[in-house]
């Protein structure tokens, strides 16, 4: 099973903001087609780690690879060279990200949001971008909303547009940072359904979530983080039903 190259490999990843060390050496690997769940209390560094994966944050120490490529750097001998902005942008094309607060472009319609990156980054023609965007919006169940502006959509609809927008770049890996935390309870299901569909289609996904039901049902691996370190990891079923560490137990007793 472990024969394939990991999609994400983290080795002793450290990250500080000023004097505050937020990630204190994260080691983990995410295999292709895996749904990898990241859970932990607020402030434990989950978002920060996710943002390091697509180089929205620079790591201070350690190594991070996505699909065999070092994130943000090039290694020659034992020297590291920073990548240029354009090279970082190139790496990010393959990594889709979905944010807690959607971050849709409010001045563009739903389909405009989805067409934007393919047209601007991959220089796709409008016709091609439009066709794919329509297909993707249909896939997330928003075929009738393609011309709506984000402000005219519910939270759940906005988040589904955001997923379609990320998928439009045909990424190898999708990062989800608490995609349902900003949603009213009755809207959570529609977003999780879309994510479940993605998982079934074999997308590699790293999901920061407090939806333990989703983690148990869809997740292939789960990591519990606290205070910038990985406390416990394993199959979601095992970790969630039979946690080994006291901190994991304490956390799960609060969220389950």
């Amino acid at each position: 099973m472990k024969s394939s190259q990991p999609m994400v490999l983290a080795e002793s990843v450290h990250k500080s903001f000023g004097l505050v060390e937020v990630l204190k050496g994260i080691d983990l690997q995410v295999l292709p087609q895996e749904v990898f769940c990241l859970v932990g209390p607020s402030g434990s560094g989950k978002s920060t780690f996710l943002r390091c994966i697509n180089h929205l944050e620079k790591i201070n120490a350690g190594r991070l690879w996505v699909d065999g490529h070092l994130v943000g750097y090039r290694q020659k001998g034992d020297k590291l060279y920073e990548l240029k902005d354009s090279e970082v942008a190139l790496q990010r094309r393959d990594i889709g990200m979905v944010f807690q607060r959607f971050n849709l472009f409010p001045h563009m319609t739903a389909i405009g949001n989805v067409m934007e990156a393919p047209m601007q980054v991959r220089k796709e023609s409008k016709a091609v971008a439009y066709e794919r965007a329509k297909r993707l919006l249909d896939r997330v169940g928003l075929a009738d909303k393609i011309n709506a502006y984000p402000s005219q959509l519910s939270g759940g609809q906005q988040q589904r547009v955001a997923i379609a927008r990320a998928l439009a770049m045909e990424p190898k890996l999708m990062l989800f940072d608490e995609p349902t935390s900003a949603l009213d309870p009755e809207l959570v299901g529609e977003v999780l359904d879309v994510m479940r569909g993605l998982a079934e289609d074999g997308m590699t996904m790293i999901v920061v979530t407090h939806e333990m039901g989703f983690a148990r049902e869809v997740g292939d691996a789960l990591v519990f983080m606290d205070g910038g370190v990985v406390v416990e990891s394993g199959h979601p079923r095992d970790v969630l039903t039979n946690p080994q560490h006291d901190r994991t137990k304490a956390f799960l007793s609060k969220v389950l």
């Binding site: 902005d85 942008a89 990010r92 990594i95 934007e116 980054v121």
Partner: peptide, 17 residues
């Protein structure tokens, strides 16, 4: 909102774009 810049960068858009 900074989230806008982040979302754009995450899609692979350059700073200028």
């Amino acid at each position: 909102d900074e989230g806008q810049t982040e979302a754009s960068h995450a899609l692979g858009m350059s700073r200028a774009k």
